[in-house]
Simulated scan of single mutants.
Amino acid sequence: MRVSSRAGFGSAAVALAVLGAVGISGATPASAAPAGWEVLSGISLSDSVAVKTVELHCPTGKVVSGGEAWLTASPGAVGRVGLERYAPSADGKTWTVVMRETGATNYTGDWQISARAFCVTTPSGYEVVAADKTGTNDYHRMQITAQCSGTKKLLGSGAMVYNTDGAFILDRVEAGFNDPTEIPFYTIARARTLDQGKVAHSQEDLRAYAICANKPAALERVRGLSDMVSPSMQNVPVACPAGKEPYSVGAGIHVSSIHENNRAQVLISGMRSSNAWAHEDPDGYVEDWRLSATLICG
């Protein structure tokens, strides 16, 4: 739907702790199901800098299983800021979120991002698997999967675009579509060139991450999906069952197959363990689209 204004964030866009000059907060709920489950929270400065990063480091003896990211209390920036990195480090010690302005001209207002990392006691068989796709984009998009080795299962998903000069943005970072009764074992990552952004060049780079381990007890996937419609904003509620906590959060934007190769006109604004949400860019998107949200819980 083509509109000139955007909806607010509601309760989803609430700042947590402050990163950088103000520090990082951590909390360990006693009732958390995953062993050693701990949440680290961070928030960027609120200013007009075009690229913002939040980096969170798990404490000694723990590794990251996944995380969250969202545009915080910045209603004027929705549809103008996209996700560039949502990923673990190769050793699993760090969770990094990068979001950047995407318009043909930079957004002049202040905006900020929040992130959370879920850290757990290092599970048996823990590994971070990365897979890269480089080269010419496939009609404005690239997609790649990263798969767990052997019989290991997916705890969390990550992805990043690089060497793109802001021309590409992530529009899907999510557990794979194997049988819904099974635990996923791979990540799907996808990026698209921007409709309102920098001019895309011929060489693009996309990396997918699968955060894997031998299957922990009570692991399960929870997925929510919106209707295929054309609003300026969509929100998908999702939650782990009672007594369980999230290992990770993923989300994806989906368009009809006939428009699959379109440039990105819908941007992910947030992925949390309670919901995911996305906004059309300032010009709107005339076609139907839907949003998925996926949790891995334990």
Rank of each mutant, 00 (worst) to 15 (best):
V39N: 13
E287S: 13
V255R: 05
A191Q: 01
V222D: 03
G197W: 11
T60G: 13
S31C: 12
V286A: 11
G197Y: 13
I113T: 07
Y86C: 01
N163R: 15
R80P: 03
E260I: 08
G79F: 03
M271C: 06
G20Y: 09
T96H: 06
M228V: 02
D165Y: 07
H57G: 08
E280Q: 13
V249L: 07
K52Y: 07
H259L: 08
K93L: 01
G20D: 15
W95P: 02
Y186T: 01
G79D: 04
S41K: 14
P216K: 14
S41R: 15
A21N: 12
S157L: 01
V238W: 10
G61P: 13
R190I: 07
G243P: 01
D179W: 09
L291V: 07
D205T: 15
F118V: 10
G82W: 03
A210S: 03
L267F: 14
K52H: 08
A30Q: 13
Y86E: 02
A17L: 12
D205Q: 15
V81E: 06
S46G: 11
G270R: 02
V54K: 03
G82N: 04
V49D: 10
V236C: 09
L40Y: 14
W289S: 04
V286N: 09
E174M: 15
T108A: 09
A115D: 02
V120T: 13
K62L: 12
A131Q: 10
A276P: 04
P184R: 11
D227L: 10
G250L: 06
A73V: 08
Q143Y: 05
G26R: 15
G20T: 06
A200V: 03
A7V: 09
L154I: 10
M99G: 03
M160Q: 09
T193L: 06
A210E: 00
G197F: 13
S31L: 13
L16G: 15
S226P: 00
Y209S: 01
T28W: 08
L83G: 00
I43G: 15
S273K: 05
P29D: 11
I113C: 08
Y247C: 11
Q203H: 11
S232I: 09
A104V: 14
D195H: 07
R190T: 09
I188C: 08
R207D: 02
E204M: 09
C297I: 03
E174I: 15
V14N: 08
L155T: 04
Y186L: 04
V222G: 02
A251N: 08
G166C: 00
H259S: 14
R192Y: 11
L83N: 00
W277P: 03
R290E: 02
A117G: 06
D195W: 05
T28K: 10
S230C: 06
T108K: 11
